[in-house]
Design a binder for these strands. Structure first.
Lengths: 196, 196
DNA sequence: ATTGAAATCGGCCTAGC
DNA sequence: GCTAGGCCGATTTCAAT
């Protein structure tokens, strides 16, 4: 697996500005042909750097509820699962999970019923602390700087280098440092799935 | 200015899922022609509900620094200005500002030099409290539910209804409840600009 | 209906074994 | 010298306006 080069980063920067930009336009700007750009974009999606093409909406113009920031302390061991459950809620737009079991949730609430919102996704008994703040403004300014790829082998934990590969299983992508890690993981996965 | 109808919301939902979806595909799904969809998307951009087409990136695959969440208490009166200054920084992706003068900043830092990062944008003496947490995961799941437009006339503060209009001045869009508010604002703006 | 963009395919070039 | 990967150009099909 190749690392990101400056052309990949340029393509990402241009698409962050306008994700509908034609490939031919990208091609002119980065000095490649349109099919070459298309190949690179496909690859960026394959490895998962580009999760999706989407919209930046101005939520201050929409009347869907009161925007709040909910700050939760939860058990560290349960934080990942709770983060996912919260992210699934329609009224939750962002969830940030910190290393020490804090979840920051950007959500829309009706009236002031934050508890009702949270109860739809998680068990309130597991929450150690809740703070709710009214949001008055939010800014989003995505950049990528000069970042390269930083993948960790899900089988052995090593850093994934140019020899690495990746697998797509059930809509989740898994990265491996080598073919043997990849096949070990796949075998184990198949075994577990047969037993289930 | 017309409010959002269910077709607008459907178009937005589909574009949130995949902003590169062809208009003809959208057209099939919402039961309109492609040009009609194109007109609606233009309108949604005009009024500012769609700020831009962009990418959802998986930052956990990129190595541009350590992702942290910085939690600041600042003087309420200075919060807006400080929020903007922080958002300008290359390494800052999100800034959330709460009603009580708290700023939550998602940033990338080198090593652990958070202070250095903040000092580039704001005066550290104005900060009343700083907490820094390591981020381990973040989810972005934009939705719009069944929201309509919620615009406030910048001239008189009334709610903008179907009679409203809007102006684009210096890349900023201003909404008005009626033609007279719009022209009052424009005249005042011109006067101020001539004097400057 | 015209103009323009996306996808596809065969072939070329280069790097690495 | 052979293979694999990346890119190009032409073509055809489909989309934007």
């Amino acid at each position: 697996m190749r690392d990101l080069d400056e052309t990949d980063r340029q393509i990402i920067r241009l698409l962050l500005e306008d994700a509908r930009r034609p490939y031919s336009d990208l091609a002119d700007r980065v000095g490649l042909s349109a099919p070459a750009v298309s190949d690179r974009v496909d690859r960026l999606r394959e490895i998962g750097v580009i999760r999706s093409f989407t919209l930046d909406l101005d939520r201050s113009l929409l009347d869907g509820g009161t925007p709040v920031l909910v700050d939760l302390d939860v058990p560290v061991a349960r934080a990942g699962e709770m983060r996912n459950a919260l992210a699934e809620l329609d009224r939750v737009e962002h969830v940030f999970q910190t290393a020490d079991g804090r979840l920051l949730v950007r959500a829309l609430v009706d009236g002031d019923d934050v508890t009702g919102l949270l109860a739809d996704a998680i068990d309130l008994d597991e929450i150690r602390r809740v703070d709710v703040d009214l949001l008055v403004e939010e800014r989003w300014t995505p950049t990528i700087g000069d970042a390269g790829l930083a993948l960790t082998c899900v089988e052995c934990g090593n850093t994934v280098t140019s020899e690495g590969e990746s697998l797509l299983i059930d809509d989740e992508r898994y990265h491996f440092c080598c073919g043997s890690c990849s096949s070990n993981f796949e075998e184990r996965f198949d075994r577990i799935q047969r037993n289930a």
